[in-house]
Simulated assay, not measured.
Amino acid sequence: MRKILYHGSDVILKKPLYGVGKEDNDYGSGFYTTEDIEKAREWAWVNGSDKSAVCNQYSIDLDGLNVLNLDEHGTLAWIAEVTNHRGASDEFTQAVADKLVEMYKIDTSKADVIIGYRADDSYMNVVKSFLRNQLSVDEVDRMFRNGNLGQQVFIKSEKAFDRICFEDYENVSMNKDSHYGEADAKARREVGKFLHNREYAIQIDGFKPAGLTVKDVISTQYEYNKEYGCYLQEERANERNEFEIDDR
């Protein structure tokens, strides 16, 4: 299966190099792309210079590659993956993040490509609030989907890098009147306001988030049920599996 991918940059990038890039990005060191050309144009506009912003286009043959889609493993797997690479903001949340990684991180060592949410710096405040027990798992999921940050297709392995073919590029206008960045900026403002109000409600009014919080999921092991799109306690998940087997 061949996919068309895009990467926003300040340069024309014909041959992405394996083994370069920062380890503290969302999924580690590798090449971050998207299937959404508008998102790539937006990232080019945000990350480009005054003189240059480029949307690069590639194709990749995924046949024979190990593609890991974090959506299929639930929000906790995604949070664990991101915090494993990005870390947390303070000693307390780091301790919680470490426990979350221990319990819910998916083994990505054999993955050639990883697909999952994009988490920019401002949206990491959502993860931080979750680690502080201020948001539920479902709220984190909704906020990232509603924020429309876009899914990333992360090229991880050397084998996957060898499959990337440069197809074309386009220059993205750096006109200050451009609409690029407006949606992200609005989403960040709304998220910032929501998180501020939530913290106030918890501290002043004693509000408790509904649904599974980080306190719940690190005190009891949960499993993600892909069919129903929800988390079940490990014992209940096993009971459901046994029932389904017997029912056949």
Rank of each mutant, 00 (worst) to 15 (best):
G21D: 06
Y6F: 15
V191G: 03
I114K: 02
L212W: 03
T220V: 14
D177A: 09
V217K: 00
K105E: 04
H179G: 14
W43A: 07
V113F: 01
D112Q: 03
T83Y: 00
H196E: 05
Y6V: 13
G74H: 03
D177L: 13
F92N: 05
E42I: 11
E102A: 12
R188T: 13
V172Y: 00
D120F: 09
H85Q: 03
R163Q: 08
Q94P: 02
E91W: 10
M124V: 09
R2I: 14
I4E: 07
S109Q: 04
D26K: 01
F243Q: 06
S219K: 10
C230K: 10
A97R: 04
S89F: 13
G48L: 07
R142M: 09
M143L: 15
R132D: 06
Y222Q: 05
E223V: 13
W78S: 14
K186Y: 12
R188S: 10
D50E: 13
D162S: 15
V54K: 00
A185G: 04
K128I: 05
I202R: 02
M124H: 11
N238E: 13
A40T: 14
D205P: 00
L76R: 00
Y180L: 08
S52N: 05
V214N: 01
E23Q: 05
Y32G: 04
S157R: 07
L65A: 10
C55S: 01
L100H: 01
G28L: 02
A201T: 13
P209A: 14
T83F: 03
L100K: 02
G211L: 12
D162E: 15
L65C: 05
Y104T: 09
A53K: 07
A237S: 09
E234F: 04
E23A: 12
I60H: 00
E227G: 02
R248F: 11
A80K: 02
R132I: 04
S59A: 13
V172W: 00
L131T: 11
V113E: 01
V127K: 01
G147A: 06
F166E: 01
M174F: 07
V11Q: 11
Y18R: 06
V82G: 01
S29W: 04
N241E: 10
W78D: 06
A210F: 07
K3S: 01
Q134N: 09
Q94D: 14
G229M: 08
Y224W: 11
G206W: 06
S29E: 10
E42M: 09
A111D: 05
V217R: 00
V217A: 01
D246I: 15
I79D: 01
K3A: 10
R132P: 03
N69W: 01
S129V: 08
V113I: 15
A119Q: 02
Q57T: 15
D184L: 15
Y169T: 08
W45Q: 08
N148A: 13
I12A: 04
N66Y: 04
A80T: 12
T33R: 02
A183R: 09
N25A: 12
L149R: 07
K39L: 15
Y231C: 06
V137Q: 01
F31S: 03
E234Q: 03
D246K: 14
F166G: 02
L100S: 05
F130E: 00
D120I: 10
K15V: 15
